[in-house]
Design a protein around this nucleic acid. Structure first.
Lengths: 212, 212
DNA sequence: ATTCCGTTCAACCAAATGGTTAAAAAGGTG
DNA sequence: CACCTTTTTAACCATTTGGTTGAACGGAAT
């Protein structure tokens, strides 16, 4: 677990407990649905402490969301290891990205919820990150563009392609309750299902991009 | 009033206005975040009317969610028109399903939110529908299985494949605010972007499934 | 006109919720 | 210890929110 611009590193134990509890509760109940009392209970502290460390509910949410967002952005870069061929790069990225989401489903829920709400908080962070140069999917787009130019894959719109990869890696976590009911094995063995899915996704997308 | 079949057909104007308003507000603010006053305002009626037609908030939500869920289930069948080849079937399904979601993003938001919350409401409906035989993706799974058996496509896990198709058709609506910032044209011309995406998705998935 | 009944409304109530406060512990420092 | 700062707590306050009530409105049947 790295810690660049990581709020959790310089915080006290209590602050950390609040932060983690808030992430879980906000992710489960939503920005508005989350109750300060629930967060306090989850952090096993008095409700007043929330206001002592974080001014109010809005501040706490923005802090938690901003931190989550930064990790989510960084995950693109971390999942995209250099590899000799595009084929290998794709495999490693799918594996890395799925693992990232699996390791912190609460963070994923926060991101998706903010998207659903269409709040300006998300837009602000995104535009700031984009202006700052390191737009998250930029590296992925470039990778696909390069592979396309080198005839490793057929000509495709790299932006659309990145979106497709991310969609397939992410959505089954979003719809996990539905998948667990619908899929024959996912309900009994989610971990195994995720492994199968990584393989399926790699094959589907790699074949879908291969030169004809 | 306890007409549990199709709320939209036998309801009065006021009831219908409440229903539509509730769908919009629940979709935007979430199950807990939605305020009865907001719904009343959106329906342009007095707050007391909500409790006159629907007992309380929970009842209203369940009614709205149940109706939305039924439409969502049905959309699979409606999008899956018979076509001579699997290639055509896939094209028509992608087009139909994307159009369905585009025509009612609020419904999609409701479904996704309930998935994120992991509530038992969703699970109950799903299991009931599955038991009742007509499990929604069943028809799609069968179609892919048949195409696979007829060597129209390479051998794949039909469940995984259906999930991939649905993911790619749905997720860009879920993450619409992010896409609008990240994609070069989606922000200025969403409609055009959706059209491009339908084409991209068809090609990606069809190539991904084609026999090798 | 009077009665009747479904509908609509303004005012109201009790509970939940976000947020405050003053004082008590806890912890370090001379 | 005495002094000061930081952390923690319980009780409290103001507002919001879900939900209720009783009266008024309006059309149709008597």
């Amino acid at each position: 677990m790295s810690n660049s611009a990581d709020p959790s590193s310089a915080y006290s134990d209590t602050e950390r407990a609040i932060f983690d509890a808030a992430l879980q509760v906000f992710a489960r109940e939503g920005r508005h649905g989350a109750r300060m009392q629930s967060i306090a209970d989850a952090a096993d502290i008095n409700k007043a402490m929330l206001h002592y460390y974080f001014r109010d509910k809005a501040t706490l949410y923005e802090e938690v969301f901003g931190y989550t967002m930064r990790r989510f952005m960084a995950s693109f870069g971390e999942s995209l290891k250099e590899a000799p061929t595009f084929k290998e790069t794709l495999r490693v990225f799918i594996d890395g990205y799925v693992e990232f989401v699996r390791s912190d489903e609460a963070a994923m829920r926060l991101m998706v919820q903010e998207n659903l709400a269409g709040g300006h908080l998300l837009g602000d962070h995104l535009r700031r990150a984009k202006k700052r140069g390191g737009a998250p999917p930029k590296i992925l787009v470039d990778t696909i563009e390069a592979a396309s130019a080198a005839d490793e894959i057929r000509p495709v719109d790299p932006h659309q392609t990145v979106l497709s990869v991310v969609s397939t890696c992410l959505f089954f976590f979003v719809a996990r309750p539905t998948v667990e009911v619908m899929h024959p094995t996912a309900g009994d063995d989610w971990e195994g299902f995720v492994e199968d899915r990584k393989e399926h996704l790699f094959e589907l997308i790699y074949c879908g991009l291969a030169p004809r």
